[in-house]
Design a protein around this nucleic acid. Structure first.
Lengths: 271, 271
DNA sequence: CGGCGAGTTGATTTTCATCAAACACTGTGG
DNA sequence: CCACAGTGTTTGATGAAAATCAACTCGCCG
């Protein structure tokens, strides 16, 4: 390890990608685990020095991808697993009909590819929505990790359980809540996550680079209805979302108004 | 270990529970892991003799519960974890409004309580719908398992990944498919699972002890609409569901008619 | 300038929820 | 034996929520 690989986008989201890419191509030094900016966040559990050394060896490199890149593809066997260092993306499942379901948003600190590590293939795709920097691991090293570092194996299971918990909440929102509450729940939850990552600006809210279509696909609502629901929440002064930034002046009030039960993030392991 | 504990129902599903319970109370011999009927199924991966010995020690006993019993409670710290040996149940989340979302159905071979093992508490409940027999483990032994038996730790993570995958599919169904397809998807999936467990009778289909309300809560549909949708699928000769049995004469045709992508179960670990 | 992607808004149609009233079946007690 | 209450299923009538269709805006880029 020690170098960064740049991957070019294949889709239309970043039309001017090529030029930019070529300009930057080359091998840059990857960040050392001990300097990882994520580790400093309170959100994440502390590493022991020993764990740190192990992870450093486990890490095979870093990957920089542009907006629009498919990081992991549904149905494919991924040889690499990733932890998000910077940037955001969406995890989604495509249907034959051309529709898609956004299962979750991929934020810094998220581990990508647990399914690929366990079963043969991924059952959903991960696509970058902004440029992303990913910390890469070899899938085949996972077994070694289980044998030699049970603490880290435990953390992997934890990550899986956390995802299971989130999906359970999402399912409950889609199944039982009307559009307004559903939308409020999603934005509240994302806001809290971004806040915990230290991305909140005092007056400007948090960066929120998604399209309304992404949110609509996450909530199981049509684009038009999502738009009107957002307008309603805005009229209620609960939030604003413009120019790629989400502002929620009073998250507790939004939670209250949308019947979201509070669920503090608590320290979680970083992988 | 070696004895069975009988737990009494507290809710109204089994009005005559008390009498029955007292008659049966007492300590019966628990089944030995090596005689576990589930192990014989092709669905599950084989155990090595060593694994078998370990699991035998890990197991702390068996629990027999009646229909209506809450096996694990949302929000509570569960000191015990379980594998379902016999019987069925539902995993569900309750909302303040009195509504609930059924996240999944608990069938033989399912591991219950992964969340409790990892985080502090369960985020959903598990309730028995029929009498159930559960294989019990001590939560506090989990860490020992990670240190001493990485194979089994890996299997635990696998179980989490499988659940994640299922929830992703469920979310996609609720978010993107209309009532008819959603219903067809759910019944098709459950039929396949029950089939793999060897519960299919040649002409009588599979046992299906749930109420329409359970299915409605799983699909995010009203009871009435679920009923009408079932009537439609029945009129299309795709399935019948009566007297607690589900029959799907041609599962492939149902899958085709409801746009379900095929997903074979494949060997999975038993915990 | 024209074209494209993303957001916005109004009109119309469809799906699904709610309300209401039966029916079938079971166990219970008079 | 029959009335009854309770639970689960079924069906029809009505209304609300959300999808679809269509048009228009705005900013951006070639």
């Amino acid at each position: 390890m020690g170098s960064v690989v740049i991957v070019r986008s294949w889709n239309s989201r970043a039309p001017s990608a090529l030029k930019f890419d070529i300009a930057r191509r080359g091998r840059t030094l990857a960040t050392d685990c001990k300097d990882c900016p994520l580790r400093r966040l309170e959100l994440f559990r502390d590493f022991s020095p020993e764990e740190l050394r192990f992870m450093q060896r486990f890490k095979t490199g870093e990957m920089q991808v542009e907006a629009g890149t498919t990081v992991l593809l549904e149905g494919a066997k991924a040889p690499q697993l990733y932890t998000v260092l910077r940037g955001m993306g969406v995890r989604s499942k495509a249907l034959g009909s051309g529709r898609r379901q956004v299962l979750n948003f991929a934020l810094p600190g998220d581990f990508l590819g647990l399914q690929a590590a366990m079963m043969a293939e991924m059952t959903y795709s991960v696509e970058a929505v902004t440029p992303m920097r990913l910390c890469a691991f070899r899938r085949s090293d996972i077994w070694d990790l289980y044998k030699r570092f049970p603490e880290r194996a435990f953390d992997l299971t934890w990550a899986g359980a956390l995802e299971e918990r989130f999906l359970g909440e999402a399912l409950t929102s889609l199944g039982q809540r009307p559009a307004r509450e559903r939308t409020g729940w999603a934005l509240h939850t994302l806001y809290r996550r971004l806040q915990a990552l230290g991305l909140e600006h005092r007056t400007e809210g948090v960066p929120f680079p998604f399209r309304q279509q992404d949110l609509a696909d996450a909530l199981g609502l049509s684009l038009v209805h999502t738009n009107k629901t957002l307008a309603r929440l805005r009229a209620e002064q609960l939030l604003t979302w413009e120019d790629g930034r989400l502002r929620i002046p009073d998250p507790d009030r939004l939670a209250e108004a949308c019947g979201v039960e509070p669920t503090e993030p608590g320290p979680r392991p970083l992988i």
